[in-house]
Structure formats: C-alpha cells, structure tokens
Amino acid sequence: MLTAILSAAMALQAAPAAPAPLPEPAPLSQDNRALLRCASAFALVARAQTQGEAEAKGWPDLTVRGREFFVRALAQLMDETGRDRVAIAALANSEAQALAASGDVPRIMPSCLLMLEAAKL
C-alpha cells in the first residue's frame, strides 16, 4: 500500500524544468568595435614585424606594446560583453581576417596608435 502511495505521489510531481537559456551576450558598442579592430590590427602588424615584412617596419614596434594592448583589449571585451574567451577570440580572428582581406590596416593605424598611446602602454 505504501509503495502505491509513493508511486502515485511521484507521478504527480512536476517534471524538472528545463534550464533557462543563457542570455544573449551584449552587442558590441562602437567603442568595443574600435577596440577589437585596433587590437586585431596590432596583432597583424606585430606578426608582420616579427616576420621581417618591410611594410610593417614603417610602424612603431608593436611586438610588445601591441601584444599587451591586444591582451588587455580582449579581457575588457569579455568583461563588457559577457562573452567568453572562445567567443572573443573568434571575433578577433574574424576581425583580423577582414582587415587583412580589405587592406585597411594602414588606413586605421594612425587612430589605433592614438588609442595605444592613450592606454599608456
């Protein structure tokens, strides 16, 4: 009899609710997009400088300062948007590919260098 009552009570219990979906990450603000763009540009130039590419030598050495900017920028983007490291890395990779394909790095570097100076790196 007790078994029948327990079985009936268990049947009446509601099934566990499905976990709530994770909230969508905040969209990138204009400032965040500029930060991502410059961080990606610095990564491209730093890599080109390391590889000895002549065009990249026309810019200030970014192998240390640019890399530090990149790391800090991506950490800031994670904090401000709620995205994880994998998602931010994917955004940076996509941005770097777009910059390389468009050839926009020389056009945006002057403003990015101002951003680098403002970061006091």
Rank of each mutant, 00 (worst) to 15 (best):
R33K: 11
A90Q: 14
E55L: 12
A46R: 05
P25W: 01
E53G: 00
G66N: 03
L77H: 00
V64R: 15
P21D: 07
R67Q: 13
L12G: 10
R47M: 14
A98I: 05
E95R: 08
E55V: 12
R37K: 12
M115S: 15
T3G: 13
D84H: 04
Q97D: 13
G103D: 06
L77K: 00
R85D: 10
P21C: 04
L6G: 06
G66S: 04
A15G: 09
A92I: 01
E95S: 07
G103Q: 05
A9G: 09
A14Q: 12
A34F: 07
P23L: 06
R65M: 13
A43M: 14
A39N: 02
E55D: 11
R107F: 08
M115Q: 14
D31Y: 00
E55S: 12
L114C: 01
T81C: 01
E95P: 00
A48E: 12
L35I: 12
S40Q: 03
E53L: 06
L22F: 07
A15C: 10
K57W: 09
P25F: 02
A4M: 10
T3I: 15
K57S: 13
Q97R: 12
T3Q: 14
P19Y: 02
S111Q: 14
R107Y: 08
E80G: 08
A56Q: 02
R67F: 09
A90C: 03
P110N: 02
D104S: 13
L44Q: 06
P106K: 03
R37A: 10
A118H: 11
L36G: 00
E80V: 06
L6M: 12
V64D: 13
P110M: 04
S94C: 05
